[in-house]
Amino acid sequence: MLAVTFAPPVLHIPDGFLSVLVALSLWLVTIVVVIIALRRVNADLGERQVPMMGVLAAAIFAGQMLNFPVAGGTSGHLLGAALATILMGPWAAVIIMTCVIGIQGLIFQDGGLLAMGANIFNMGIVGVVITHFVYRSIRAAAGNRVWSIFVGGFLSAWLSVVLSALITGLELALSGTSPANVAIPAMGGVHILIGLGEALITVGALAFLYFTRPDLLKIGEAKPAGRGIWLAGLVMAIAVAVASPLASSHPDGLEWVAEQQGFLMHAQSAPYHIVPDYLFPGIENQALATILAGIVGVLVVFAVALGIAYARRNKNAASAASQTQH
């Protein structure tokens, strides 16, 4: 799996790696979401946006050429879903990413045609929805303070890449073209790093725009995207948190090999577990326990993020109040 690490955009699934059932169902979901997005964009933004979205899609495509060296010949890249979402709002970002992924597949064979529905779903829909959910939550919790643009930008960009990757792994596993307990951890692991590059570039771009044209950062905020997308983001995050450990702990594949060789014993050397091996104490049903542990994990992570955001807000509000008193 190491060689995959060095090929940055490994999220584009080629044809042949998805079963027809998986590919067509994801095409169906994608078509529905894109049609809704087209309606919303048309209603919200009007005719002015057609040339703007075409140019921004071209810009995201071209922006993927921008890279920076990391180490050992690898480089950090921009994928752009998070930046498009933060700047343009979720519906417009879905359209922009659809165009980017469409051209990549149709013209440059970066991703397949039958698999394009899945690719648009993974990067254009999951990436956008997760970004919107995380960024909006952090912005709102922080009372729209300036620093939350960057913290929200970083976390949302990183999480959107990681969750897109986990979903890609799930799809490969569902299609039977890669063992679940290899595909999901490998995709997730690689993209935890790739996502850091994405997050850093996104923050850099947001910082540049904040200092030069802060008005541009308000375009995406001006449109009330509604609770729907935010809720979809929460559901998606929980669904991935539930499905990935469930799928990758299935006693199949590598684990089976490992059991045969008996090196599972060596693997259990962590000195402590808060939620031991994703299982909840006192619950008999293994699957149920795993799901519960996944949900609790997601909630804990977000509770911590939101808690920090609230604490910062109160502190800032207090210091602002004390300044006005003097």
Binding site: F68, L78, L87, L200, G204, A205, F208, R213
Partner: peptide
């Protein structure tokens, strides 16, 4: 720096 370039490109 790369982020600044990306922001510039978008601008």
């Amino acid at each position: 720096v790369t982020g600044g370039m990306a922001g510039n490109l978008l601008l």
